[in-house]
Structures are given as structure tokens and as C-alpha cells.
Design a protein around this nucleic acid. Structure first.
Lengths: 332, 332
DNA sequence: ATGAAAGCGCTAACAA
DNA sequence: TTGTTAGCGCTTTCAT
């Protein structure tokens, strides 16, 4: 048995005794083919196990409709929510989306970016702050590139979408102030750009209000210690410890919650807690967490809009900033 | 300004003053091009913003290297773990993987499957039990198809990979028996095939051991009630309630954990709990959950192996079953 | 309603 | 080292 080449429309045409043009028309259900021949062609195709060659078809029709999306981590709902919004918008535009993820490894992420470019995506949307700026810059020359989320440094040639961390932080802090809190501490998790921005905005807001700052910064892996430090102060009866904590993300906030409850502090009675990101966690922990929400789906849709603009010829980069909002729940 | 057609190798060739063959060679870093011309070509390409047309390239080279993977839900670590293993194996084979997800919607999932086929994937791996069998069968005619996870009915023409639910259940129940438990209840969540299999295996195992069965089945949305029913029996002082619960998944098990602790029952002292799937949840709740682990990464790798076999011409379907193992933690 | 012929952009013989 | 020439499988005029 020969290595059985995959059948083409020519084979089908031969089998049905017609020209390949007719086959092409019939297979795509285009008008202009008599019922009889159409049936004969379809039957012959089925018979041979014919499958259209996508590459050839797209070569002719110009299959420029694939958008690559790169996210840090499949398990992170922040990223997947952005993807959802983007996919929704893409569907409306008749564009396809291809998602790749780095499984929390920069190396993997870089490989995936190259793979997508090699696969011929028309543009790439990066929802991750893990890619090195020089790579982004280089890639932006190969295809339109939109970065969603924090960008550590300005990179020429690409579009960006960010939430306004300063505004989000202000929302959180002023919510607490409005509730009568004056001793508001900040728990900063990690030194990533987002955390830094939020920390700075916290400091500014407190200063503007004439309130004293109380900042604890911890690495992502030793949140527990920082939380303990914070709460030791709170437990003091002399009334100098914080009555509220604003954490730079929901995970940190949930740790504060846990620790507070372990120490017999009531939330929000003895201690109010606000997080950032409005993640699943915020809707899961008890009490439910008040948290700053980034309009993730909107950011995804916006990303797609920028992509389309680029594809249509826009050349000067755009940097969009979206406004977060505060979701108030049981923890304040 | 005209609608600027995308540059081709011919444009690059003209700009560099060479033939298109040279451009093709230079761009692919093939040998046989002098350093000087190569540099000139690369520069011209960069200058024009040239990007290779994947469709044309694949038409010629026979781009049979893209594997589509379909998962129910980006947020489900069972699925993403399978994908991880698969991607690892794919990388070794020089195959590319394209992941699409259905965001917990059958309709979306179906659309994604069609999209992948239209995009020309060489084969599809479906990690989901949400696709209707007839669609699977039809798709299996369009491209090799491997289904990972439970398959409700036998579908001709496709390969399957499953964990041995009966064996896993036996592992769980006999672990409890070995710990001295005799009144072991089962909490079945949903009526999906996996849950059914586990329920049946529980019944068999208990019967084999001469122990009385105690089964509570609940829908995925009202687990709470079922758990309450179970625990009311446990709380009775007359010593007839269960001393252990085997739940058909980790979510159910974690609910049992929560409820037990709310009622002042010690785990594992008053009540031992075993889950299924060894999900993130099992490593998160307190006490940590003893759970049956499916070798997810292995299943992914196996899926890729089956795909490769199909691509190399295997025609008779294969149905692989992998052995789960029990991970013992604090809840028993 | 049907067929012939001209490409789509690229790779790969083969010549020069 | 370079250029010329066929295709890859399909869609799409344009004749018939």
C-alpha cells in the first residue's frame, strides 16, 4: 500500500467526472452547481475521505484573522477574564483568538511568543508583565503588539492598556476614611510595578489627608510575617494600632483576614480590610472582601480594538488607562 | 496613501536587487548565501516590515505540526495540568499546541472545535466531557481526535484516555477501611459519568467488604444540603452515623470539611474525609485533604503519543486507562 | 451549468 | 553563489 497521499479537489473532480472548479463550488455550497452534480461531487468527496487543505484555502483567501494572546498563567482569573472580554470582541469582528500561556515561567512565555509569531498571528496581545522589554520591542516590529497590565518601562512601538492604580488606591483609602478610619495601614506584597504604584498612591493619599502612613512591605512568599507584624500593633489596647488595612492585592488581604480572626479580632468591627483586584478570592473568603476592581473584560475588549486599529494601519502607539472601581463587601 | 499591501519576498527581492529564491534562503538562515547579500536582504526585509506568510509556507511544506487542545474551562486545574503534560511532550516532538477553551459553555466549546479544525490543526485533543458524542464522531472524521476524561458513550473512530475510577474509588475506600472505619458514607456530586462510576465502585467495594452502604447524591449546586443530611447522622451520639466520608470530588469533600468543623466535629478524629482529583483545593483547605490523584500530566503526555501514532497512520482506535493513586493527607 | 486558466506567496529542484 | 522555473491546493475570473 502506497503512503496514501491526502486527496485533493483534483482527485474528487476526477472521481466525480467534473472539473475542479465545480468541486470547489459544490464543496462550499456556492450557487451555480446543478443539484445532480453537486450530489455526485459530495458523494465522491465523502467517499475519498476528502478534507480541504486549510493552508491552500487561506493562502488564497488571505487568512489574516488570527490574534495571539499570551498570558502568564492559565490559573489566574485576572488574565482569563481579560481573555474572555477579548475573545468576545474578537468574535464580533470575525477574528480568531489563539491563547498561549507561560505557566508562570518567563522562559516558557518567551517561547510561546516566538511560536505564535512563527505561526503567523496577525497581532499579539500580551497579558503579562513577565516579558522583558527588549523582547517586546523586538516583537513589536514583527507584529502589532498590545500589552495589558503593568509595563515597567516605556517601550517604543507598542500599545498599552493599564488600570489606574493611583485612582484605585485612592478609592480604597478614601472609602476607609469615609468610614471614619484614621489609622490605616498598608500591606504591600512584592515589589512588582503594580504593588509599587499602589504603595506610592497610598502614601500620597494619606499625606493629602493629613494622616500618618503605616507601611509594611513583604515578599510574596512571606506574607505571613508581615501580617503578624501588622496585627501585633492592632492588638495593642493603647489605641495606636491600625483600625484598617489596605493590601496591595486580595491574597494579602485574605491573609490579614485569616490572621485577624485567629487573634480574635472582629472584621470589620476591630479591623477593616480592603484588597485589590476583586479576584475570586474576594468572593470566597469570609467575610467577603471589599476590593478594587479592574474592568478586566473591558480591558480585553479594548485590547482587541487597539489590535484592529493597528491592523487597519494606525502607526503611532496608544496608551490607554482604564478606571477601576471599588466593590464594597463585608470586610469594611 | 494606497491600502499598503503586505510585502512579499518578491518585494524584498526587488528592494535588495536579488531573486526571490535568495530571499527565501536568507530569511530562513539556510546556507548557500554570501554574507554580503544575506545582510542586504535581511536589511531590506526589516526595512519593508516583511513578515512571512504562514499559509503559503505551510502549503508548500505541509504544515502538519499544530495540535489543537480543547478544554472546558481555563480556570480548572485538572484540565490545565493535562495540557501542561501534553505541551511538554509536544515540545519534545517539535509539535505546536494551540489551546482553546469553552468557558464552561458547550456552545462555545463547539465553536472552538470548529475554529481549530478550520485553522488546520493536524489533530485535536479534547479534555472535556461537554461535547456531544455525535459531534465528536463527526469531527473524528475530519481530523484525528483524542478524548481525555470521561466519555459517556462509546464513540467510534476516536481514541480515549481515562483514569480508572473503580480502582481510584477502591483505593479511597480501602484506605478508610484500613484505618478501622466501618461506617463509611459516600457523597456523590452530580450525575456526570465520573461521579456515577465512582458511586458504583463505592457500592461494590463496600459490599465486597460486607459493609453497609450509605449514599447521598446531590446536584452540583446544592451540595450544602446533602452535606447537612450526612452530618446530622454523624452528630448522633448513638454511634450509627458514619465515621468517614468519601466524596466523589474535592469540592464536595471540602464542603464536608467545612460543615464538620462548623458543627464542632474533629477531622479526622470524629470524621475522616477523602476526596477525588487531588485538586488545588485539596492542598489548600485545612486540614489538608486526602484525595485520589489522577496522573494528569501523564494523561496529557499519553494523549500526545496517541496523536502522533494517528498522524503516523494508525487507524484502529485505542482506549487507554491510567491508574490513579491515593495521596494521604491530614483529613484521614 | 461547466471548464480552462491565472494566480495567492512560498519552497525546492534545477540551471547557470 | 545566484537566478529560473515549477509546482503546493485552492479560489476566482472569464470563457464556453
Amino acid at each position: 500500500m502506497p503512503p496514501t497521499r491526502r486527496p485533493t479537489i483534483i482527485d474528487v473532480a476526477a472521481a466525480a467526472g467534473v472539473s475542479k472548479s465545480l468541486v470547489s463550488l459544490a464543496l462550499r455550497a456556492e450557487p451555480g452547481v446543478s443539484e445532480a452534480t453537486r450530489a455526485r461531487i459530495l458523494h465522491a468527496a465523502e467517499d475519498l475521505g476528502y478534507r480541504s487543505n486549510v493552508w491552500a484555502r487561506n493562502l488564497v483567501r488571505g487568512g489574516e484573522n488570527l490574534i495571539g494572546v499570551l498570558i502568564t498563567d492559565l490559573g489566574n482569573s485576572y488574565h482569563t477574564d481579560v481573555v474572555l472580554g477579548l475573545e468576545e470582541a474578537a468574535q464580533e469582528q470575525g477574528l480568531s483568538v489563539m491563547v498561549a500561556h507561560g505557566m508562570r515561567s518567563t522562559e516558557r512565555l518567551v517561547a510561546q511568543l516566538h511560536r505564535q509569531l512563527a505561526l503567523g498571528v496577525a497581532a499579539v496581545v500580551v497579558v503579562s508583565s513577565w516579558l522583558p522589554p527588549d523582547l517586546l520591542e523586538a516583537s513589536a516590529r514583527a507584529a502589532p503588539l498590545v500589552v495589558v497590565g503593568r509595563l515597567p518601562v516605556a517601550v517604543p512601538g507598542l500599545d498599552t492598556i493599564n488600570n489606574d492604580d493611583a485612582a484605585g488606591t485612592r478609592l480604597a483609602v478614601e472609602h476607609l476614611v469615609g468610614l471614619g478610619h484614621e489609622r490605616i495601614a498598608h500591606l504591600g506584597i512584592s515589589n512588582r510595578p503594580a504593588a509599587q504604584q499602589r504603595r506610592a498612591a497610598y502614601a500620597t493619599t494619606m499625606r493629602d489627608r493629613g494622616l500618618a502612613e503605616h507601611i509594611v512591605v513583604v515578599g510574596p512568599d512571606d506574607v505571613t510575617e508581615g501580617v503578624a507584624t501588622l496585627l501585633r500593633a492592632t492588638a495593642r489596647a493603647d489605641g495606636t494600632g491600625p483600625t484598617a488595612v489596605f493590601a496591595s492585592n486580595d491574597l494579602g488581604a485574605s491573609r490579614v483576614l485569616d490572621a485577624a480572626i485567629d487573634r480574635g479580632l472582629g472584621v470589620p468591627g476591630d479591623l477593616a480590610v480592603v484588597g485589590y483586584d476583586n479576584s475570586t478570592l474576594a468572593r470566597t473568603v469570609r467575610p467577603r472582601l471589599t476590593s478594587v476592581d479592574q474592568p478586566r473584560a473591558d480591558m480585553g475588549r479594548l485590547a482587541l480594538r487597539l489590535v484592529v486599529e493597528r491592523l487597519e494601519g494606525r502607526v503611532e502607539p496608544r496608551h490607554e488607562v482604564v478606571a477601576p472601581r471599588l466593590v464594597v463587601r463585608g470586610s469594611t
